[in-house]
Design a protein around this nucleic acid. Structure first.
Length: 419
RNA sequence: GUGGGCGUAGUGUAGUUGGUUAACACGUCAGGUUGUGGCCCUGAAGAUCGCGGGUUCAAGUCCCGUCGCUCACCCCA
């Protein structure tokens, strides 16, 4: 029955049955980060609103209508973290990480909050695994982050993914491009959708990935960003492509690829699964060479990605990816009499100290009921202790898989059970 | 923010053109004689049919509102 108070809209309980998926994704990500020497950082769940307004962008949807903003009792304007990069950069500055060998390689796994309308693969609270390499402008670092992302999916067993790659230029060449784009659209305003009419002023790059049918003609003829890159950006981009190529990571250059956060410069990328559809992007990232400066640090380059764990799991399930076998319960201790209870607890305690999992049955329940319980918990062994066993200081040890059983001294259970 | 579908026990479903004690499966619990699981059999608990209002002699079944879920747009991981 639905309780009076339910989980807030767009949030969900991750129940024990689901946890193996989460463990698997987290473990895989952490192990991979170890290979690349990315180390974990945790930042607060909420930050000064200004952090996101300045970096993500005042005119972006994320800031304008999707942030959970609140005032605390000291009238501080705070926001629940709507993305992971800006807080990490804030921490980089705050803790003087520029004094460490550059780039500083960091990763995080954290909840993200956005006041969106929930939908398949979209939640108000979701979780992202992300990495940031801060302090190195080299295209090889862009590639490194792409490799981590690609390897993550590979290690998880996901297939059929497409890596889209693009460069959106920098502060030098992008304004020139935007100007050209606006000029191009200026005489076509009556032929594009309302959203696009607004985008021309507010967020012109977004014009490029409008999916509206009426806008496709305009999009098709629009000037390509890659034609407007300055020499440095063009160079950078072709090197990134070369490295990605040499790693054998399949990719397509998609000049329409644009990101919804303002801080990106140069390289941007996005990974799409085979299934087409709205909320399909499973991971995305790019370079953000101006971000740190925007929040008061010395000019410092950076690059990174974030990938949505819910969407990863969604795709793993669609593709029938198998999870490693869960560790099963080693021993279920059955109390066949009330007097056995204290010995059952002692046995279970000893087993646990020996590194084996153990659960004790309820001596008020019948032996049969306890055996059933052992079966439904999929225990490897049932250890039965009753009056007979107590007399001999032994237990009846039954292997549930084949029903075989033997009498063993109380102290020998652990060694018998251990595989 | 916009539009479509849906909302019945823990879970998944059935409930004929509105008409008496809301059904089934799985799950849970208890039994199937004397200390033993998985199959099988029996039984029990568990739903004021999301919530609020309305129409009607009568509503799980019709209408309105509301909340939630879901799908698409938008946006994004």
């Amino acid at each position: 029955m639905a309780p009076d108070i339910q989980a807030p809209r767009g949030t969900q309980d991750i129940l024990p049955d689901e946890q193996p998926w989460w463990d698997y994704v987290r473990d895989t990500a952490e192990k991979l980060c170890g290979e690349f020497r990315y180390t974990q950082i945790d930042t607060p769940m909420f930050e000064d609103v200004a952090l996101f307004k300045r970096t993500v962008g005042d005119t972006t949807d994320i800031v304008q209508k999707e942030m959970y903003v609140f005032q605390d009792r000291g009238d501080q304007e705070l926001a629940l973290r709507p993305e992971g990069t800006a807080p990490v950069c804030r921490a980089y500055i705050e803790h003087g990480m520029h004094n460490q060998p550059q780039p500083v390689r960091l990763f995080y796994i954290t909840p993200i909050f956005r006041y969106d309308r929930p939908q398949a693969g979209r939640y108000r609270q979701h979780h992202q695994f992300g990495i940031e390499a801060i302090g190195d402008a080299s295209p090889s670092v862009d590639t490194e982050t792409i490799e981590v992302l690609w390897r993550l999916y590979e290690n998880l067993g996901l297939t059929g993914l497409t890596l889209n790659l693009n460069s959106i230029g920098d502060a030098e060449c992008r304004p020139r491009y935007l100007e050209a784009l606006r000029a191009y659209y200026s005489d076509k305003l009556d032929r594009v959708c309302r959203d696009c009419q607004a985008r021309v002023e507010r967020n012109p790059l977004r014009l490029l990935d409008c999916k509206n049918a009426e806008c496709q003609d305009a999009v098709a003829g629009a000037p390509a960003l890659t034609d407007y890159l300055c020499e440095a950006c063009g160079d950078h981009f072709s090197q990134v492509r070369g490295y990605v190529e040499s790693l054998g990571i399949p990719h397509v250059v998609n000049p329409r690829l644009v990101r919804g956060l303002d801080y990106y410069t140069r390289t941007v990328y996005e990974v799409q699964p085979v299934e087409e559809g709205g909320q399909s992007t499973v991971g995305a990232g790019g370079r953000y060479d101006g971000l740190i400066e925007q929040i008061g640090g010395n000019p410092t380059p950076g690059v990174g990605f974030a990938t949505g764990i819910e969407r990863i799991i969604l795709n793993m399930k669609r593709q029938n990816v198998n999870l490693p076998d869960a560790a099963r319960l080693a021993v279920f201790v059955v109390c066949a009499s009330a007097a056995a209870r204290v010995f059952a607890f002692k046995l279970a305690s000893d087993l646990r100290r020996a590194g084996l999992s153990a659960v004790v049955g309820d001596s008020d329940r019948s032996l049969k009921a306890q055996m059933r319980h052992a079966g439904s918990l999929q225990a490897a062994y049932a250890a039965i202790i009753g009056d007979r066993e107590l007399e001999a200081n032994s237990v009846t040890l039954k292997r549930l898989a084949d029903g075989s059983q033997e009498t063993v001294p109380m102290g020998d259970v652990a060694s018998r059970v251990r595989p």
